[in-house]
Design a protein around this nucleic acid. Structure first.
Ligand code: FES
Ligand code: FES
Lengths: 148, 148
DNA sequence: TTTCATGTAACTTTATCTATTACATGAAAT
DNA sequence: ATTTCATGTAATAGATAAAGTTACATGAAA
């Protein structure tokens, strides 16, 4: 299976952008995420269309957050990315004639839809602000360790 | 994403085998599943090692079910296949230094592990016999329709 | 001993995600 | 105005993983 890491990458970028005053260039974001600037633009374009970020050209240009961190959820990001497939498991035939295969698919689909619903619900209950909060918590923990 | 359809394919094959007297050859199974006999052998080998099926060579050889349909669950099959990755979503970096990325990964991992646990629990509660039962139910439904 | 069927390794094909190149567009600095 | 910076996007190449195919070995039944 070849899995996508867009969601993870975009969230990381957003955290960066939130912690940064002023726009960040694709170049800088790409370096942090060890990827290519064009990949950043490409991935980010969905968020721009959804109005979650803005991009400006020219000097002092780059990417900025344009959404409320308290209200924007991971699910919003996931949707802005085009709701890529969640599962690496699929039916071998989506519209089988064979009743045996239909029974198999129904059983799998049932379980997978339920799990996907749970995942999306969890995504929906997680805001960008919460992740940012977790970050500052981790920062505190690290400093506490250093002090001892 | 390129998703795997092994689980679906294997379950279909098992249903076939359950509904069939005597061993079925990889060739026949492959035709039903519109794939290649070698793919069948390769995929099935995990189930054989787990003792869920047996294979015999030579004349009248082929694959037979060797497990209790009432007790064997989809999760057993999934494990016999080597527990392939469930998700098409992954972290872009599994052991990041960056605390921001750690916070992002923790949030995603959390949600995904919970959903995966639910999925595996559902898999565990679904036996081969239940799927076979669903099949006969579908068969009845179809015949009922024909009668009207 | 011939035929059938699995067992497995090696290789090819196909699909998809990521990376890169190339060039166009537009905004700020000079 | 012109240069510089940065995005926007299409087109192409590379990397990875699943599925398909070929080839040959093993072993059992006819
Ligand atoms: S790499 Fe994540 S904070 Fe810079
Ligand atoms: S294709 Fe033969 S029963 Fe499924």
């Amino acid at each position: 299976m070849k899995s996508s890491s867009r969601l993870s990458a975009v969230l990381h970028a957003l955290m960066h952008m939130a912690a940064h005053r002023g726009p960040m260039t694709s170049e800088v974001l790409a370096q942090c995420m060890s990827t290519h600037p064009v990949v950043v633009r490409r991935t980010m374009s969905g968020l721009r269309e959804a109005g979650l970020v803005t991009s400006t050209k020219g000097h002092n240009g780059g990417w900025s957050i344009a959404c409320d961190m308290e209200k924007t959820t991971i699910r919003d990001i996931h949707e802005a990315l085009g709701e890529p497939a969640v599962y690496a498991i699929a039916n071998s035939n989506d519209a089988p004639q064979c009743l045996l295969e239909q029974a198999v698919n129904a059983a799998l689909d049932d379980a997978m839809k339920e799990a996907e619903a749970l995942l999306l619900a969890r995504f929906q209950s997680l805001t960008l602000a919460q992740i940012a909060g977790d970050f500052t918590e981790r920062l505190r923990q690290r400093h506490r360790h250093k002090d001892h």
